[in-house]
Design a protein around this nucleic acid. Structure first.
Length: 188
DNA sequence: CTCCGGATTCGT
DNA sequence: CGAATCCGGAGT
């Protein structure tokens, strides 16, 4: 039932963040919990471009929380939001850039617990919490896998969600990407 | 040390 | 539209 892990290599993440964001759509996120794979097909993401992106945590500089964002690509950046939910990101580009892609929604594939349409719900369904912050995505516990299916045909671009505080210039940028007409998107 | 607000979600 | 719930980051 389990294939071999087969994670995407670090080079996949060591590229332009918008490119990585778009190419993550259709890939499978895999988390092995108690020897059992939880798998979801990535259908919605947001790009956070780096220190110059006012909506990105990294725009505040290197702090204990953003340490992972400023590290090498291909690691998980997980943080607690509103004291209630976790958000799961993948770090992109070279160390020092502070760039990442937020995973916003999954189409259930295997063993997800509950809804996965929204960053907090996604993390719950995949059982990802702060214990996974900094996890190496080229390992065998938490990783991204190419399902070997055709990439999504129609990718929609919209402004990111919940970043109005970054000002109109950054909040207006079309850095949210999702598979058009997919039923598991967090919002229209 | 205190204080404020957040890349969310749910119920009213 | 407000509550839930807690920590990071900034200021004293």
């Amino acid at each position: 039932m389990h294939g071999r892990p087969n994670p995407l290599p670090r080079e996949f993440f060591d590229r332009d963040t918008i490119e990585v964001a778009r190419e993550l759509l259709g890939k499978h996120l895999v988390h092995v919990v108690a020897g059992r794979e939880r798998v979801g097909r990535i259908v919605e993401v947001e790009a956070y471009l780096g220190t110059h992106d006012r909506a990105s945590h990294s725009s505040k500089g290197l702090t204990p929380r953003t340490r992972v964002m400023f590290g090498p690509p291909g690691h998980a950046y997980v943080y607690l939001i509103y004291g209630l939910y976790h958000c799961t990101n993948v770090v992109t580009e070279a160390a020092g850039c502070g760039a990442a892609v937020l995973l916003r929604a999954l189409e259930p594939v295997l063993n997800l617990s509950g809804r996965s349409n929204g960053p907090g719900l996604l993390s719950n369904a995949m059982q990802i919490d702060l214990g996974r912050n900094g996890a190496d995505l080229t390992g065998t516990e938490l990783f991204v896998r190419d399902p070997g299916e055709p990439a999504p045909r129609h990718i929609a671009r919209r402004p990111r969600i919940g970043v109005d505080g970054a000002g109109p210039r950054w909040a207006g940028r079309l850095l949210r990407f999702y598979e058009k007409d997919n039923a598991w998107i967090s919002r229209r």
